[in-house]
Design a binder for these strands. Structure first.
Length: 326
DNA sequence: GCCACCGGTGGC
DNA sequence: GCCACCGGTGGC
């Protein structure tokens, strides 16, 4: 295949010395530096099955089924995006005028797009979510997630030392925006960065991917990458190749986050919709994530802050969001 | 003027 | 219907 170039970086044991749960603080600080303005009213109809809890055996079967059905692993790696300040966003958009401000200072985040706040990966065994200490580590794991499933013990690599017996690092409550990432995306070449920008709610797209070249240029399509490499053969000489780039974006779990394209021509059929199946219940696959999440006791998800006053009722995933598995 | 962000669309 | 790609533009 074209994506086997695992030797590009092979950090093998790249252990950044993030020990301890301080890792999470790290993640947090990242989060805090980027705000989101999405006014994601949770108008989600709670029609989804409320996270049925099944035996792990059942789940494994479920997983297997899904794997066969969808040809994808059941274990999803996630990009989590913290829409805290939802209220702020709502305020600015309520005026009807374009709040086309760019965030920079975290003080005035009237912006819409934002960076991903934190990354988590689901254990293939217990299905609990584990924070990734850094985006880089996340990307490493994602690159081979299909062949090398992630387990809680993997957190040893950054000395987090979680096991399946430990409570989850976080659960899918309504306090964040969750998105399912695509598996096996190649690491960016050394010196390059893959940038994921989440768009504001209600737009026509969920996110954008940019590659930042070592010299700081931003490339936003394969066409541009190709062109760039042509003009900079030195990178090619050093082994940079197109296969190392992917502009795939995650999918939001929150249905309706992205506006559907309005039908170009009114077709009598489509006008009265009639076809709720077409995307109301996509993939027909709604329980994976809702699985085993142990009712997340008080394990105070490190990221939820602003909504500290929200109902502390442990909402299981699927309860407020319809789970859309990519 | 630059660029981050968004919308639109053509091709699959 | 999705998504790769690109044009437009508001805010700086």
């Amino acid at each position: 295949m074209e994506r086997d170039h695992a030797d590009v970086i092979t950090p093998g044991k790249m252990d950044q010395n993030d020990s301890e749960p301080a890792d999470l603080n790290k993640v947090n600080s990242k989060v805090n530096s980027l705000r989101v303005s999405t006014s994601r009213d949770i108008t989600e109809t709670p029609t989804q099955k409320p996270a049925k809890v099944t035996s792990s055996a059942e789940q494994e079967n479920q997983i297997r089924e899904d794997e066969e059905t969808h040809g994808e692993n059941a274990q999803k790696q996630l990009v989590i995006y913290d829409p805290d300040v939802a209220a702020a966003g709502a305020a600015s958009t309520a005026t009807g005028k374009r709040p086309h401000a760019r965030r920079n200072s975290l003080a005035n985040y009237t912006s819409r797009a934002a960076d991903v706040g934190a990354f988590a990966v689901q254990c293939a065994r217990c299905f609990k979510w584990r924070y990734m200490p850094t985006k880089e580590k996340y990307e490493e794991i994602r690159e081979h997630i299909l062949e090398q499933p992630f387990y809680c013990e993997t957190t040893r690599e950054w000395r987090s030392d979680k096991s399946c017996d430990d409570p989850p690092d976080l659960t899918q409550d309504g306090s964040r925006l969750w998105a399912i990432d695509k598996p096996n995306i190649s690491l960016p070449p050394p010196g390059w960065e893959r940038l994921l920008r989440i768009r504001a709610e209600g737009g026509t797209k969920f996110a954008d991917v940019y590659y930042v070249t070592p010299s700081g240029e931003r490339l936003r399509s394969m066409v541009k990458v190709r062109k760039y490499l042509e003009q900079h053969p030195e990178y090619v000489a050093r082994g940079v190749e197109e296969a190392q780039f992917s502009f795939e974006v995650p999918r939001p779990l929150q249905e309706g986050y992205v506006k559907k394209r309005s039908a170009p021509s009114r077709d009598i059929n489509s006008v009265s919709d009639v076809n709720p199946i077409s995307w109301a219940a996509p993939e027909g696959n709604t329980d994976l994530l809702g699985g085993p999440v142990p009712s997340a006791p008080s394990d105070a998800a490190p990221l939820d802050v602003p909504n500290g006053n929200s109902p502390k009722k442990p909402k299981l995933m699927g309860e407020s969001d319809s789970v859309v598995i990519a």
